[in-house]
Design a binder for these strands. Structure first.
Lengths: 231, 231
DNA sequence: AAGTGGTCTAGACCACGTA
DNA sequence: ACGTGGTCTAGACCACTTA
């Protein structure tokens, strides 16, 4: 016979009942306990299923208020931002890396705002190119808080990317992420192999260790890049 | 005194131990059972905490192999794509909507590929503008599979957006999502209030009901738009 | 005040992958 | 074959929210 009902089975069953109209947007679902009795499983199993549907934005749960099918389901997708090298290698390309510039400098206003008050006046500024099969994949424009990771000053960044070194040596506790679009200025266009004015996808990420900002990086992706998502 | 240790406490405790170097990238963590004994809680509690850390890409778990700190933690963020109207209203703006065009037509190759084999030769093509406080917010270019949702043919799409009608009346079982950047062509630029050639963030979404494609929509966001993410 | 979801526990068994 | 994570169960208690 088939396997015993697991929480994923319960989840799919409820999901199917929402799709086929058994429960419509705004409808109230039975209490977990009743569903559990119907399906002859433990309440915890139903609870786990419901929690998953809730995280996916399909239902809304309130204590005492019960469980309702959302009227405006929110489409939620997960973005995975891997190490540049991994992203390229997983795509079947040969990874290449080129350090463009490395210097201590005062960051622009944008970076100061992203890092907040906890950043010193001078940061390490690193510009580098990530290549896939020899072609530009992304241009990385990074600012590193040397007060938090002074070790990076003695690293040979022409051999290993700051991206890779930081990920392997300085775990972060949280990060912010912003996705936008920008036209390529002439300098960027030349480096990334695009026409000046081309539309580039831009990924801004700032990572933190507790209250201290570690690094703020802006990655401009080569033309035609599509951000991988998983729903 | 303080609350009993919940699974989130356990998660944060382990996370902290990874951050402060107690466990380094590549290290093996103790078995769930041992951690549970240490913290004087049930193994299921540790399991729930570990599952969360695993989903966040911080650790890797393998049966028999144990739990290891990932060498290349993957940054994972959640994208929420709400209803256009909600996104604007939640941002404090007054929502406006304008239907630009509505016609039956043969979809371009891009849409046919996105929908796969299950799409008819002719689809309903809807172009519409979403406004925030009177200013363009997004230009929606949508193709609807009328074989799956024939009801939409009798809806007055100058009053309610196809976006809103579909979300409220045709639940989907899954969707794909792609984020990219594109230059505004003259027609788009005029509608969305941008200079021709401006870089626009573009969101492509295709939703499905089982094996049947419901709709493929391309939203071009107004210049300066930043995609909201939650990590 | 009472109802409903959220979580913990202790024990059991299963599933998977490594040795 | 065996060790480890994954899940289920039944019961209990807690937390929040609304009636």
């Amino acid at each position: 016979m088939g396997a015993r009902t697991g929480w994923k089975d319960v989840r799919d069953r409820i999901h199917a009942q929402i799709l086929n109209g058994r429960y419509e947007p705004g409808d109230k679902l039975p209490r977990d306990a009743d569903i559990a009795e119907d399906l002859m499983c433990a309440r915890a199993t139903v609870q786990r299923a419901m929690q998953d549907l809730s995280e996916k934005g399909l239902i809304e749960r309130r204590r005492k208020g019960g469980t309702h099918v959302r009227r405006d389901p929110v489409a939620r997708a997960t973005l995975s931002i891997p190490l540049m090298r991994r992203e390229i290698e997983d795509g079947g390309g040969v990874y290449g890396y080129r350090l463009i510039a490395r210097e201590m400098a005062e960051p622009p206003e944008r970076v100061r705002r992203a890092m907040g008050a906890g950043a010193p006046a001078e940061l390490l500024h690193v510009t580098a190119l990530h290549l896939s099969d020899g072609a530009a994949h992304a241009l990385e424009d990074r600012w590193v808080n040397t007060a938090v990771v002074p070790e990076i000053l003695v690293i040979d960044l022409s051999t290993i990317s700051a991206n890779e070194w930081l990920v392997g040596n300085k775990p972060y506790s949280r990060f912010t992420l912003e996705i936008s679009a920008e036209r390529a200025d002439p300098g960027t266009a030349a480096l990334i192999g695009a026409e000046p004015g081309a539309a580039l996808l831009m990924i801004d990420r700032t990572t933190w260790a507790g209250e201290a900002p570690i690094t703020a990086v802006r990655a401009r992706m080569a033309p035609g890049y599509t951000l991988p998502t998983r729903s």
